[in-house]
Design a protein around this nucleic acid. Structure first.
Length: 925
RNA sequence: GGGCCUGUAGCUCAGUUGGUCAGAGCGCACGCCUGAUAAGCGUGAGGUCACUAGUUCAACUCUAGUCAGGCCCA
């Protein structure tokens, strides 16, 4: 007879196939329709706060794998902490200003051939940024990330811009802001500064000259053992920068030698001697001694080759190479980026006597009025006359050009506004703040300390259009900067009402009129002020998110609990945020800073379109679903760089399938649950083991969620599903759940235990795979959901630590599990020899220690081993004998037992006969 | 060149303060089951812990260096 109808097979609407691509959008829609996020906020109102403050991604392009990883990790934290009982709001943000967007807009404009004004450019940039905020918002939501998507913070919003101006005013008032010179790429034809992204490199023919510098104060040189009359030789391709020369840089460790040629003696790097003599055509002898290192010469002075009243200092710098030139590098801080940096170290003046059109100013003496490239000839001629010129030729090399007009660029020092890190001991204060923040992983501390310590003053001004206007003036008479705190305060209001555009629409008179005054230069008293039309560095924008966003208006407060960004943000957002927070005297902006690695391809290379190795998260979502992507990310240790390969996605999918099937099986079995009444104390046998194991899993996972170690959560959950549930508990308990007496305490307590585990298991999964967890939650009977309509509203239970007795109890299972392993091997051996098929074909004879004879730690031995029968005897050594089970197969539970055939009905075992009898009496099922 | 980081089975990860720590899951191979079935169960084969040299009675675990790779600077 077929007894299938008399057993409780799993039944559930939770399908085996995920169908995530179809289901996830439906769940998303439901969440939004029912305002789940709002309900979570409401439910956690008044709970302890846990604020993850979002570092703003750039509003350009689609979400790529790196931004997806970042937001998903953030979501893991927010969701897990929400379920741990914290009020954990998430306000996403976007960085909207800056070069990349302006560059895109300008490129589009270049194609149309139209030249746009600033107002138009800004409007188009705003439109562009807004478009991609919308694109990315939709994509982030689709990833299952919860947050205030309808009320994000945008750095281009009036409030935010206004806050930037406000903060800038406070920094001015605090004395942190100063004007100084700094060399930048400059297009003489367009008369504008260029950002790095606007520079194109192309071949260009430049002069190539070798110039000898004479000793200044030869006595000082002699004191260091250098003969009088030795000349130091430099090589340059920009003769016109020689008037701005203030130093000659040597490499500190490289060797420098003397070369006697005719009646002169030159000094060059040992490694460059032959190239130097070959190119200049000079003949001479390299002297074996003396030999100097660059460091030996530091601090000596040379005569300036062109300007009689100036000198040039001997300095050392690591950027000096032995690849070209003489190893002695002409240094003009006004005309080179590296020169500027090393000049800063020595406190050298930034001299740059060149105007916007590339003509020398009066400061250049005889060269005044000459265009710099024309001046090359005059300078070469003068050097020749003075004897300083050793050789002059030409060189074709890669040279920076303007992306717009294609003409060659120069480096030119311009007046810029800086945040002085040495003002009021700011850097030291920030370094102290670093001590006060917790860094995850711990080495983030060292990295931040080291980076902050060598950080130069922060150049805040940019000669661009798309950003927040720098609210300052310069005096038209004396040229001094005018940073008027009262005007800035008024501009704060102006910008709050009208955005930063308003600055550009008003004259200095109008701007001063906001304070009821007339323009006046505090230095010279002139009323003739020029509005500075620079914008602020975009890093300044994002650095102020703590100031603009961690406040009531967003339902947040400072300090935030956590910042979480990729490791490149140590110098970036983390660093600049600390600086402004300290400079504004606000204390630390955050308690914990977490960093994750960058996503690379399988070979550790950066993903880029040109390499064709890009993995798109959107494609994965479209084909597999967001939960698969999330599970993939959950499995990796994000503290290291993440080498992403599509093959790993197969593993994530496999893990998902296993988790899903395990959920499905349990859901299918609790269909028969009537009352949820879970009492751990009433559990018996193997149920106790499963219970203790699950408790251990829970406390482990909650601890790891607290420590932001998601890959450990993932590993434990996955192993638990594979080993403890699928391989052990569910396999062992299948017989009881299917065939046992429905009213028996064994069935009821096992079913309650399983229900309890299932509910908590879904909750553990919820932060990682929020869609699937929600889908499973919906299948749970109302009685056990305790009124939570969504799993994301549920709270993790408090899990008690193990008592000594419980630890001992769990340990007491080890020998039994060992017996089980050995029996499995024996069963396998019998299977291989064809004696048995399934485990129920077998009966096992065990020789075990005396205390193991009565039962498997309170569990029925046969059930524990999933065989038809077990006989135990006490023995010294463990021994396992597997034989074919004797008796007949019970047609209901499929065990082979001797009593089958002797009862009524004749084809079932005694347990099943009893159950059948009861069923027919009770009439149920 | 500097600061910081990474390198354990094909893949993703465990391996507290040096001594049964060379492990897990997946994948793979082989087999079983057919009442979780485009499921489920079992068994098995895979690593000289990037490399080299030290310290030590003992090193994946400590020290130094090398190689490969990453981020940020220069």
């Amino acid at each position: 007879m077929n007894y299938k109808e008399t057993i409780r097979l799993p039944r559930t609407g939770f399908s085996m196939k995920g169908n995530l691509v179809r289901k996830e959008p439906e769940i998303l829609e439901k969440w939004e329709k029912e305002d789940l996020y709002g309900k979570i906020r409401e439910a956690r109102g008044g709970a302890p706060r846990f604020i993850l403050h979002d570092g703003p991604p750039y509003a350009n392009g689609h979400v790529h794998i790196g931004t997806a990883l970042n937001k998903i990790l953030k979501d893991f934290i927010v969701k897990s902490h929400t379920m741990m009982g914290f009020d954990s709001p998430f306000v996403p943000g976007w960085d909207c200003h800056g070069m990349p967007i302006e560059h895109r807009v300008m490129s589009d404009q270049k194609e149309t051939g139209k030249r746009l004004g600033r107002k138009e450019i800004r409007a188009r940039c705003r439109e562009y940024a807004a478009r991609f905020v919308n694109v990315q918002r939709k994509e982030f939501r689709r990833l299952g990330v919860f947050g205030e998507w309808d009320r994000p913070y945008l750095t281009m919003n009036n409030d935010y811009e206004s806050g930037i101006v406000d903060a800038f005013g406070k920094l001015v008032a605090g004395g942190y802001v100063y004007q100084g010179l700094r060399p930048i790429h400059w297009c003489m034809k367009c008369g504008t500064a260029l950002a790095e992204a606007e520079v194109e490199y192309a071949d260009h023919t430049s002069p190539s000259i070798y110039v000898a510098f004479r000793q200044h104060e030869p006595g000082d040189w002699k004191d260091r053992g250098i003969p009088e009359g030795v000349e130091v030789v430099i090589w340059t391709t920009t003769p016109w920068t020689l008037p701005a020369n203030v130093a000659v840089a040597l490499h500190p460790q490289e060797k420098y030698v003397l070369v006697a040629s005719g009646d002169r003696t030159f000094m060059v790097a040992e490694k460059r001697v032959s190239a130097f003599m070959e190119e200049t055509g000079l003949e001479g002898d390299v002297q074996g001694s003396p030999i100097f290192s660059g460091a030996d010469l530091e601090g000596l002075f040379l005569e300036h080759p062109l300007l009689r009243d100036k000198t040039s200092m001997m300095i050392v710098a690591e950027h000096v190479t032995m690849d070209d030139g003489t190893g002695c590098v002409h240094t003009a801080p006004g005309h080179g980026a590296e020169d500027f940096v090393v000049g800063g170290v020595y406190g050298l003046p930034v001299f740059s006597p060149v105007d916007e059109e590339g003509r020398f100013t009066a400061e250049a003496g005889d060269y005044a009025g000459l265009h710099v490239f024309e001046a090359n000839k005059a300078i070469v001629a003068d050097l020749k006359k003075s004897g300083g010129l050793l050789n002059s030729s030409g060189i074709v090399h890669s040279y920076p050009h303007c992306w717009r007009c294609k003409s060659p660029l120069i480096f030119r020092a311009t007046r810029q506004f800086f945040l002085g890190l040495s003002r009021k001991n700011l850097k030291a204060r920030v370094l102290n703040m670093v001590d006060d923040i917790k860094w995850h992983p711990g080495w983030g501390y060292e990295r931040m300390k080291n980076m902050m310590a060598v950080r130069p003053d922060w150049c805040l001004s940019r000669q661009r259009a798309w950003g927040v206007a720098l609210p300052v003036f310069t005096c038209g008479e004396c040229g001094e900067p005018v940073m008027d705190v009262r005007v800035i305060s008024s501009v704060v209001e102006l910008v709050r009402e009208n955005g930063s555009d308003a600055w550009f629409e008003k004259t200095p008179e109008e701007l001063f009129a906001l304070t009821g005054r007339k323009p006046e230069c505090p230095s010279c008293g002139s009323g003739n002020l020029d509005r500075v039309d620079d914008i602020l560095d975009v890093w300044f924008d994002s650095s102020l998110s703590h100031y603009n966003v961690l406040r009531d208006e967003y339902g947040l407060e400072r300090p935030a609990s956590v910042y979480l960004e990729a490791t490149d943000q140590h110098r970036g957002w983390f660093g600049v945020s600390l600086i402004t927070s300290e400079a504004l005297d606000l204390g630390k902006p955050v308690e914990h800073v977490i960093t994750h690695g960058l996503v690379q391809d399988m070979n550790g290379r950066k993903m880029s379109k040109s390499l064709g190795n890009v993995i798109s998260p959107l494609e994965i979502i479209d084909r597999q679903g967001a939960d698969i992507l999330r599970l993939w990310f959950a499995g990796v240790d994000y503290t290291a760089d993440f080498r992403a390969d599509l093959s790993q996605l197969d593993d994530a999918r496999e893990a998902y399938r296993k988790l899903r099937n395990t959920l499905r099986f349990m859901l299918g079995n609790i269909t028969y649950l009537e009352d949820f009444n879970f009492d751990p104390a009433s559990l018996k046998g193997f149920d106790r083991y499963a219970y203790l194991r699950f408790r251990k899993l829970m406390s482990f996972c909650l601890e790891e969620y607290r420590a932001f170690q998601f890959h450990r959560v993932y590993r434990e959950i996955r192993n638990f599903a594979v080993i403890d549930l699928s391989g052990q508990f569910l396999d062992i308990r299948k017989d009881r759940l299917y065939c046992g007496d429905a009213d028996s305490p064994e069935v009821l307590s096992t079913r309650n235990l399983m229900t309890w585990m299932l509910k908590n298991f879904i909750m553990l999964l919820a932060p990682l795979i929020p869609f699937t967890a929600e889908e499973a939650w919906a299948e749970l009977p109302e009685v056990i959901k305790e009124g939570c309509e969504s799993v994301h509203l549920a709270l993790y239970p408090r899990i008690k630590d193990f008592t000594e007795a419980e630890s001992a109890e769990l340990r007491s299972w080890e020998p039994y599990m060992e017996v089980r392993r050995i029996v499995m091997k024996e069963l396998e051996a019998k299977r291989a020899s064809g004696e048995i098929g399934g485990g129920l074909d077998a009966s096992v004879a065990l020789e075990v220690p005396e205390d193991m004879v009565p039962s498997a730690n309170g569990e029925d031995w046969a059930d524990f081993l999933i065989v038809s029968g077990v006989e135990t005897v006490a023995g010294e050594d463990l021994s396992v004998t597997v034989v074919k089970a004797r008796g007949s197969k019970c047609e209901r539970c499929w065990k082979i037992l001797p009593e089958v055939g002797r009862l009524e009905p004749a084809d079932v075992c005694s347990r099943c006969a009893g159950v059948l009898r009861k069923m027919s009496e009770g009439g149920d099922e």
